[in-house]
Design a protein around this nucleic acid. Structure first.
Lengths: 205, 205
DNA sequence: CTTGCAACCGACCGCCGGGTATGTAACCCT
DNA sequence: AGGGTTACATACCCGGCGGTCGGTTGCAAG
């Protein structure tokens, strides 16, 4: 069999398999054996591309989840001075995603991958904690600066504190996913999302 | 050394040690060896009182965390037909607790123990998921029925959906703890709590 | 006082985890 | 063409894990 080489592709497969494995089983519970099997490669390749399990975990965070937050939240918000409808549409997109996803692979089953990482690893490893902090900070900053711009443009209530609201919204999102996966009923998930929507509505000037 | 026996006490110590260990290291990452050492007893005793690691985890959930939710949320809310100030005072008590706690043992460091369990174990084990579901359901029900009573008493806005708000508030609480432990700065934590408070204020009739 | 059992002890076990050492084949450069 | 390096594959290692098991001892009932 004429083996072809494509290190970049191998690395991507590893990253994707690692993402799935850690998403489902947690970082500590995630097994490198399962990761390499699911990626269709071997341990040798894994340890060639990553120094160890932790580094793979870090890479998933930086090269998978960070960009996801950027494209879902940071970029849409950066382009607008009317953040409320933008955020509503983000939550809306997310709602649609919920109904499409296959049973055992999505948010309804596994929650928010970022929040999962945070819940498990933040107290245990500073490498994870710092990377998560950077991610959440960027996320909150995107919201809070957009809210500030919205205030300046007269589209967002002046009497709210953008930083507080940002922290709150990110937390609400994380918590919704975390509690939703327990129930596994889309109804409860959607209920919390409706309340978030109502809250967002209340931010309008 | 004249060993004294006190099975109930032994069981309690085991439960407490298990709680701490799983809180800090997660369930999968938690070590029975450490639990036994920290409780000052032996593996024999542990396996005498509990069938295995999972059963200890279940017991922590049912005998430690469930009662905590009851005394923090369910009972105070059951006694009132004006839930908004009650919930504000609960969050207030929680804020105070935040400032008192020792660095590596509290919410600011380890987040919400229930949410940690949920994030890690809900997708992995139905025993955990069902118990967590019961817990969260009781929590949400306490809030939602109190809100309903508040609406009937004319103290809570009639145009909100109690069930949605309950799901949302529980989620916000969980998420606040989960994201707060990443930053480890009380300021960010308090910011989110202020926003929650503002949201609660908005529920008044 | 004895008997019986619940409570507990601690050495031991098998397994599976992350990690490594060594080999080999594809690819690149000159 | 061929040497060097990168990209893998495979077999192996060791530690720690959850769990077991025979033994001992406090303690209450008869």
């Amino acid at each position: 069999m004429p083996r072809r080489r494509d290190p970049a592709r191998t690395r991507r497969k590893l990253l994707a398999a690692g993402y799935r494995e850690f998403y489902r089983h947690g970082f500590q519970g995630g097994s490198l054996k399962r990761i390499v099997e699911s990626a269709g490669i071997t341990k040798g390749a894994l340890f060639h591309h990553f120094a160890g399990k932790k580094e793979l975990g870090y890479a998933v965070l930086e090269e998978f989840l960070y960009p996801a937050v950027k494209s879902w939240w940071v970029e849409p918000l950066a382009a607008s001075d009317d953040p409320v409808p933008v955020m509503q549409s983000i939550f809306g997109r997310f709602r649609k995603l919920l109904d499409q996803e296959k049973a055992e692979e999505g948010y309804l089953f596994n929650g928010c991958p970022i929040c999962n990482y945070a819940a498990e690893m933040a107290p245990l490893d500073d490498g994870f904690r710092e990377r998560l902090d950077r991610l959440y900070t960027a996320w909150r900053r995107a919201i809070s600066t957009a809210l500030k711009r919205g205030q300046d443009a007269g589209r967002v209530r002046a009497d709210i504190r953008p930083a507080d609201e940002a922290a709150f919204l990110v937390a609400a999102f994380a918590g919704t996913a975390a509690t939703g996966k327990v129930t596994r009923k889309a109804a409860s998930f959607h209920g919390a999302l409706r309340a978030i929507d109502r809250h967002l509505e209340g931010l309008r000037a």
